[in-house]
């Protein structure tokens, strides 16, 4: 990803009317809300959104209020991609039969990590295999926040959640985060990318690219949750920057399976000395507090090791090592 490809300025983005409206009931400092606002700013024309059950679905559609200035459908937790299939198929055939306008309509399916990594994974895999033309947007806040911070397969190693508490014998979540974007690439998708809202131009560009693909596209967006991460709401966006700077969440895109680091991560590959230690990112987050106790030193080291290992693997995929 290069910023040269970017055609809009902050002013143009600011001027574009919101499709995700204020008055939603997300917590203070909720980055998924920022993500949705920015994603909707990136739309290129008529767009239908379908959303899985989850925080963003709930906060934006508490009857009689809606925060959606675009057509929007929610059916269930595991169904975002299946919904997108039905919407896309309906648009296609009704257009063919001349029952609706011939104008192109983009379809975006939105889900959190629970609705993507876990319960919605089968529907996502199926819809992608069938090749429906839609963008799947994952806002990853790394746990089931809507139900009260339970671990998902997107929760990182070591994190304390209400179903992986940091106890005296088990120090938080033992398993590692599922490499979902890689799994999506294994579906032979034309466009898969990861993004972080701190690098908002990059995020918006990737949304636009995903929409432009004729077929399924997958975008994994890192989305800090101060409530679930037990962190300072003011620092929510900062954590989305630190996750990139520590290579905990590198940002990249893969067009037809060809991995390419996006600028902020590319920079770290060129200047490895700028890569920050993971502790810079972990500290200040209540979910990782136990990792800084002397007895858990090994756990902290392990997180650094796994981060380094995955970063190296990624560099290899990008032909940078």
């Amino acid at each position: 990803m290069t910023t040269q490809e970017w055609k809009f300025t902050a002013k143009e983005i600011a001027n574009k009317p919101d499709l995700f409206l204020p008055g939603h009931r997300a917590c203070a400092g909720c980055v998924p809300a920022t993500v949705l606002k920015l994603v909707m700013k990136a739309t290129r024309g008529p767009t239908i959104v379908t959303e899985a059950t989850g925080c963003m679905e709930v906060v934006s559609s508490i009857y009689p209020y809606t925060s959606w200035a675009t057509p929007w459908l929610h059916t269930a937790f595991e169904t975002a991609a299946a919904n997108a299939s039905g919407i896309e198929a309906a648009l296609k055939i009704m257009k063919k039969k001349g029952r609706i306008s011939q104008e192109h309509v983009d379809v975006i399916a939105i889900a959190g990590d629970g609705g993507t990594f876990d319960i919605g994974f089968q529907a996502l895999s199926g819809a992608v295999e069938r090749g429906h033309d839609f963008l799947f947007l994952l806002y990853d806040n790394e746990a089931y926040m809507n139900t009260g911070i339970q671990r998902s397969s997107g929760t990182p190693h070591g994190a304390a959640t209400t179903t992986s508490p940091a106890g005296s014998s088990v120090p938080g979540k033992l398993e590692y985060k599922k490499p979902l974007a890689d799994i999506m690439i294994a579906h032979n998708m034309e466009y898969v990318a990861t993004a972080s809202p701190y690098y908002w131009r990059d995020l918006i560009t990737k949304v636009r690219k995903g929409l432009e693909v004729e077929g399924p596209a997958f975008l994994h967006v890192f989305a800090p949750c101060p409530r679930g991460w037990r962190s300072n709401p003011a620092k929510s966006i900062e954590y989305s920057k630190l996750a990139v700077e520590t290579c905990v969440f590198p940002i990249w895109e893969a067009v037809n399976g060809n991995y390419k680091l996006s600028s902020p991560s590319k920079l770290l590959s060129l200047a490895p000395q700028k890569k920050k230690p993971v502790s810079d990112y972990l500290k200040g987050q209540g979910r990782f507090r136990h990792m800084f106790k002397p007895e858990n030193k090994a756990l902290l080291d392990e997180v650094q090791n796994i981060t380094d290992k995955r970063w190296k693997q990624l560099l290899k995929k990008c032909n940078l090592s």
Binding site: K11, A14, N15, L38
Partner: peptide
Amino acid sequence: RCLTCVIFCPDGAINWVP
């Protein structure tokens, strides 16, 4: 007036007034 705050506000509470 760099609009960083406008971009990042989760609540759409900061607007650019042309």
